[in-house]
Design a protein around this nucleic acid. Sequence first.
DNA 1: GTTAGTTATGTAAAGGATTACATTTTCGTA
DNA 2: TACGAAAATGTAATCCTTTACATAACTAAC
Lengths: 327, 327
Amino acid sequence: MANINEVAKVAGVSVATVSRVLNGQNVVTPKTKIKVEDAIRKLKYEPSMLGRNLRNSESRVLLVLVPTISNPFYFEIIKGIEQNALDHNYNILLCETDSNPERENIYFDLVRKKMADGIISMDPAVNIDTLKELSKNHAIIQCSEYSLEGNIPYVTIDNEDAAYRAVKHLIKLGHEKIALFNSNEKYLYARQRKDGYVKALEEFGIQVNPDYMLYTDQLGFEQGIQATKKVMSLKDRPTAIFSVSDLLAIGALKELNNTGVEVPDEVALIGFDNIDFSNMTHPTLTTIAQPMYQMGTVASTMLINKINGEDVENKFLNHELLIREST
Amino acid sequence: MANINEVAKVAGVSVATVSRVLNGQNVVTPKTKIKVEDAIRKLKYEPSMLGRNLRNSESRVLLVLVPTISNPFYFEIIKGIEQNALDHNYNILLCETDSNPERENIYFDLVRKKMADGIISMDPAVNIDTLKELSKNHAIIQCSEYSLEGNIPYVTIDNEDAAYRAVKHLIKLGHEKIALFNSNEKYLYARQRKDGYVKALEEFGIQVNPDYMLYTDQLGFEQGIQATKKVMSLKDRPTAIFSVSDLLAIGALKELNNTGVEVPDEVALIGFDNIDFSNMTHPTLTTIAQPMYQMGTVASTMLINKINGEDVENKFLNHELLIREST
DNA sequence: GTTAGTTATGTAAAGGATTACATTTTCGTA
DNA sequence: TACGAAAATGTAATCCTTTACATAACTAAC
């Protein structure tokens, strides 16, 4: 593989001139430019990013931290990040932490060792202390999930309001016995969504029933099944379920289908996230849509700005309640 | 940020010695080793991969090319690749081509420009000519989808046999009118799966009915709905459907559910890939399981071997027919 | 035809690590 | 104590670009 020196030699110019042509600085005479371009073509020269990156002290790689790639919620966000990153000549390294600190550390090391220029964290289980520490010397943005500690910029939606509206929708349909499938309250978004749930109930004078509030460690299909089993075995069954994730809701739907409970007639169901599959189930799922693609592009833009030393502000994006067959 | 020179100065040794400590070469006296480690800690030194990579002419990044990250089929494969890569100190760059040549080219450029050491391609729509050309100078492995052109090593399953067994299973259940939802025959795997379908029918003396063979450009949910509408509007409806992807099958299931057709009683259904959701539908989906995780680790191992200049052989892995509620 | 002022090109340092080769230190043995 | 071999450490080149600064070439005006 040819390097810039050989190109310079063949073109009969200096490496500086070759570099100038490469980087499109138009201080180069058309005549010399052509000589250089001919040499490049002749030698099939491809500039090495290794040398370039070292010289520029950058890697042009963005780290994207997700707890798991199996959760479709992240797809659109990732697509948004990726498109925006490519548009700015960055590449993304998708990192699945599995909420495993060891793995997380492997990825954090990449930014410490300059293999990545910044991080977009979407992992609610991220080690916030490490993140805080890292954010002192590196560009970091939180996307969707966030913590207020450490003053790390974030982009997200108003979780409380989203939950509030979902539950209000159920109440308007006549439901009073509304279960909440939530994730662990150590996560900020879980607390916020609960607050919205409680706020809606209280506003309509409905007593909050602790039996109806279930917590699961993960937001998966299986957890949805289990939570549904539990709540449907109560003497006083709920007539509606609000799940803080579509996967949970799809698990619930499966269990309700299996036990012959009619959705939405006997039990109404709302999910959260509007993943693709929420529209493929039978019946289709009412859910809260976050502007995921946009969230991705915004996060990416914020990160790139931060890398360039600019100040960035937190952003709240709009959500939307999609009413479908399950309510 | 400190560099190796400063560490050397603080430790009172040469950069070579620091480098030796860093790389765990145990030619260094315990006494000096401690001095160096102290200096590293004191300066919070982190070796830069930029310098290291340039010097070693490697990036320790593997490119993974997928048509889309939304298809759950790729999850487990990616997880397998990633774990194996991490175990060998590589990182993966997940590249979604959207079957868009321009995007593809951005990613190919990364390996041309030394930002990546090799490629695992899982995109059936990949530009095989470019891939051939690239494979002359770069390590490339095909995973799951492959082409025989260009002699690029691959890991896959026996698609013909898998389809053959699926259709045979339907025949054994008494079905004779079996539809095939296939993807475009420009793809090798589509041709192979059709061959398996035909082989099974012929073996049992069943006439192949062209009306039952549908082709779709993409393997998504929507295409499954459309194909089902088409095939169920025939005078002589099929009693079973074999889809070459779970997503297609889930689309079919949705359409059958919607129109009140009982699965499996009126129409039996088989998918392909055993994605997570195939077990979440109602009824659950009979499907063909590929050893996806293993396919990932094998592909990754093959690629790393190739990068290290070793010869690698094509591999065929075992598949399995998972009989569930839809048949 | 000079000279000053532009514009184009060249030289060499810098970025941060690894490592072949050279040099110094250590240690056992005579 | 001195010598040689073995072990530890150091020096400097190398990987490939970019770019500040130096120099050369050119243009225009007198």
